[in-house]
Design a protein around this nucleic acid. Sequence first.
DNA 1: CATGAATGAGAATTCATTCAT
DNA 2: TATGAATGAATTCTCATTCAT
Lengths: 209, 209, 209, 209
Amino acid sequence: MAYRRSALMEERLASNRERILAAARRLIAEGGYREAQIAAVAAEAGMSTGMIYRYFRSKADLFIEVMTAAIARELEILNGIAKGPGTAKERLYAAVESFTRRALTGPNLAYAFIAEPAEPEVDIARIRVRQKLGNVFKAILKEGITAGEFPAQDMDASAACIVGAYTEALVGPIAPKGQRVKDQERLIQSISDFCVRAVSQPINPSGKR
Amino acid sequence: MAYRRSALMEERLASNRERILAAARRLIAEGGYREAQIAAVAAEAGMSTGMIYRYFRSKADLFIEVMTAAIARELEILNGIAKGPGTAKERLYAAVESFTRRALTGPNLAYAFIAEPAEPEVDIARIRVRQKLGNVFKAILKEGITAGEFPAQDMDASAACIVGAYTEALVGPIAPKGQRVKDQERLIQSISDFCVRAVSQPINPSGKR
Amino acid sequence: MAYRRSALMEERLASNRERILAAARRLIAEGGYREAQIAAVAAEAGMSTGMIYRYFRSKADLFIEVMTAAIARELEILNGIAKGPGTAKERLYAAVESFTRRALTGPNLAYAFIAEPAEPEVDIARIRVRQKLGNVFKAILKEGITAGEFPAQDMDASAACIVGAYTEALVGPIAPKGQRVKDQERLIQSISDFCVRAVSQPINPSGKR
Amino acid sequence: MAYRRSALMEERLASNRERILAAARRLIAEGGYREAQIAAVAAEAGMSTGMIYRYFRSKADLFIEVMTAAIARELEILNGIAKGPGTAKERLYAAVESFTRRALTGPNLAYAFIAEPAEPEVDIARIRVRQKLGNVFKAILKEGITAGEFPAQDMDASAACIVGAYTEALVGPIAPKGQRVKDQERLIQSISDFCVRAVSQPINPSGKR
DNA sequence: CATGAATGAGAATTCATTCAT
DNA sequence: TATGAATGAATTCTCATTCAT
């Protein structure tokens, strides 16, 4: 009995936390941070506002966790690709392709940690999250450069550029209430190609510098 | 007399409008949208809050115009480069270089219409503004493709990617109160190189898949 | 015109500030700090809650000012007595008498800065305020000791004791919902006598110590 | 079996009640009423919040009982002194000395029922508690006046003044997080002397007015 | 045309109390 | 009997917008 109650409790706790996170995720995906006030999140999660504060110290904390959780999933997948088989080029292509495809297909939560503002703490967390995304690409780049697949370059800048490139190309299409893309596959390929080219040696290096 | 007063009035109106825009621009550059409350803008412009509403229907309207005006200047410069002499590659490089240099050097207004959130209307305007930036690059791309400098590609996607790439690479460095970049020149070149490579034909076409 | 408006404005400002303070004073006198929520103060003052924040940074600030203002008046009067003519004994008696009489006669605001709790900041201010009251008595004591009217004693302790003595003797009668005092004059005299005796040389010093 | 369980239950009930009271006392002594939320009391007592409500109708009830219990101990001691041997003067001195010493030495629970605010019901209870304290001194006074040790005086007022005097002189020193008094012994003596003098016949009756 | 005082609709957060388990 | 999750009313504070002067 004691055991079962304890088990139930833990399950319930977990489920509440999850429900809150899911509710926040849903609201953010639909209308951005702006639409995700505590009261709205509570309503969406089917509980009282007080409950939110049992699980999260503040609104900012909740949002940071939503963002972190969302990106954690992405990072897992991207890291899987980055550390997987294939040439650096292939893996870079696959990574960008994978991210953009999920962003276009699933709930457009991407928008939230990519293009929207919020409290300062959340903004700071957002920057960190993007840096983590960048690190995945940086790792691939490093290997590619070592292997001679890519020319020498400022890996930090390139990584940031990659993140920015596919992000921007997605923002329009996935912005809250934004229009759906017709030819998703084509877009996904275009973005991925862009990123791979961007870090590869061009036929005749630009006459600049 | 009546005529002259009227003229004076118009001049005053124009000057007031400018003062408001300038004040808003300054505040946004310093502290982002969050710091640019109507009362603060009014104080910075040396007038009353009521005056703001004589010239702008709402806070969102004002911010949209600040953004539009700021980007109008950028567009002018970028268009000058795009329509100027040189190969498409050279012009693309010069365009990105020019934008990033000004963003890093001048007041970091760029941050505001690049990375920060605001009211929905402002967000929508921000997307439009970025599309306009993209159009400049699209024009260069088109010429470059026609001239055989660049391979065939989805110009819309590439243009968006370019905007996103340099934007992202800038956001960290130019965020309000963000740390200054040590080697700005190096960063500017890295970003510009990235963008040029991204639309150019790589030595051996990416062996994707 | 400009002058008159400016004059009107200042007058209005002053009157608003006063109205807020008066409203807070009234509510505190009636029901203590507990009853003086910002919304209630605003309603009592016939204005919106926002107005309160135009004149006071926070609720605590407002309360501190109510307390300070109330005590400032008292201090003025008490200091007038302390620095006036008469022996130290006479002045001490007069000071206590004056304070207690006003406390019993006027609105029982005394209760608020004497016996009730509030936010930490207000509590700190309350202690300061009471110390200021004590300082008045300390000054009289000092002169009385020098003049040989009073025996040597710990003036800080005696001053605090005086403040506490008449305060406590008042709190019962003036505490919210407290019973009315029949013979106010008698009480005033008893308290004043108590305080004067307390710092005077007794006929045969207590056999203690 | 049923009997024994019942006995155990009662014991447990009593012990629970005590544990709650002790926990509340500890928290109040440390941080005042403000820090003694029901949840905190429950945690400190090692039980659930629900348990608190099995033993106390409300938070106010609990606090009133904490106060009453604490003062009951004081009253016992003070009454012991009041009814003990010695002159009225000696007993008055001893009573004040005893109270102030414990207040300064032990956990500063005194602060809570002396100077801090709380719910209206608690405030009312606090006044009652202080009146009870006053009654002890009133009893001593009565005997002293009858014995000719003290002059005729309003015993109610004097008793209240005594309670107020040492209370106020203590509040600063014992306020939560307040600074420690350096020379406690000196302070205790000063306060006690003050109170004894206050009810004694001065050398030359105050030439008031 | 100009002012800036005034409004008041939110939004976040806290915590005593209840009640299903 | 015991738990502690859940509730939600209450409260402070902000700031875009209006409007009397």
